[in-house]
Simulated assay, not measured.
Amino acid sequence: MKKIVFLCFVLFSITVKAQFTESLASDRPGQALSVNTVGKNVFQNQTGIDFFENNSLYVPSSFFRFGLSEKLELNSGFILSGENFASDLASFTIGARYLLSNVDSNSKSSLQLSYDFGADAKNTQLTYIFGSSFTDKLSYTANLGINVNDDFNTNNALYVFNMAYSLNTKMGVFVETFGTFLNNTDQINFDAGYYYLINTNFQLDALIGENDGLFVGAGFTWRVPFNKK
Rank of each mutant, 00 (worst) to 15 (best):
S34P: 04
S114V: 14
S81Q: 12
N184K: 10
A86F: 03
Y159K: 03
Q46I: 05
D136L: 10
T169G: 13
K228G: 03
N45K: 09
Y140Q: 04
F43G: 04
K137L: 06
S109Y: 01
N45C: 12
T127W: 07
G95F: 05
F51E: 07
L214Q: 02
G118V: 09
V216I: 08
Q19L: 07
T185N: 15
G39E: 00
F51M: 08
S139K: 11
F78E: 02
I188S: 09
Q44Y: 12
A32L: 02
G209D: 07
N227I: 06
A18C: 09
L158N: 15
Q44D: 10
N201D: 15
L89R: 07
D120T: 15
Q44V: 08
G131E: 00
T47D: 08
K40N: 13
Y58L: 11
D88M: 05
F12P: 14
N199H: 13
G213R: 02
P29C: 03
G131L: 01
K71Q: 05
Y140E: 05
F52S: 01
T185F: 00
M163P: 01
Q203I: 00
I49Q: 00
Q112F: 13
S69P: 06
S26G: 03
Q187G: 12
D205T: 05
A164N: 03
G217N: 02
E22W: 03
V59S: 11
T21N: 13
F178D: 02
D186G: 07
P60V: 00
S76E: 10
T154Y: 09
G95Y: 02
F12V: 11
S91A: 14
L68Q: 13
D116N: 12
S133H: 15
K228R: 13
V42K: 04
I129F: 00
N227M: 06
L11R: 14
E73D: 11
V42H: 02
D212M: 14
L167M: 09
V59G: 00
F117Q: 02
A164E: 06
F178K: 05
G48F: 01
L113I: 14
N201Q: 15
V173L: 12
V5L: 09
I94G: 15
F152C: 11
Q125E: 08
V160W: 02
V38P: 13
A90K: 10
L126C: 10
G95D: 05
A192E: 04
S105A: 15
G30R: 00
Y195L: 01
I49E: 00
P225L: 07
L204E: 00
F43R: 05
V148L: 04
I49A: 01
I79N: 03
Y128L: 13
L126D: 04
Y58M: 08
L204D: 01
D151A: 15
S114A: 11
N123M: 10
L74R: 01
Y195S: 01
F181Q: 04
T124N: 15
T221D: 15
F85Q: 03
G82K: 09
F51C: 11
Y165R: 07
I79V: 15
L72E: 08
P60D: 06
L72G: 08
L144W: 06
Y140G: 02
N55S: 12
N183H: 08
V59N: 02
N162I: 02
L68D: 06
G193V: 09
A142F: 05
N54K: 12
T15I: 15
S62I: 04
K137V: 01
F181C: 05
A86K: 01
R97D: 10
E53R: 10
E70T: 11
N106W: 04
S76H: 03
F63P: 03
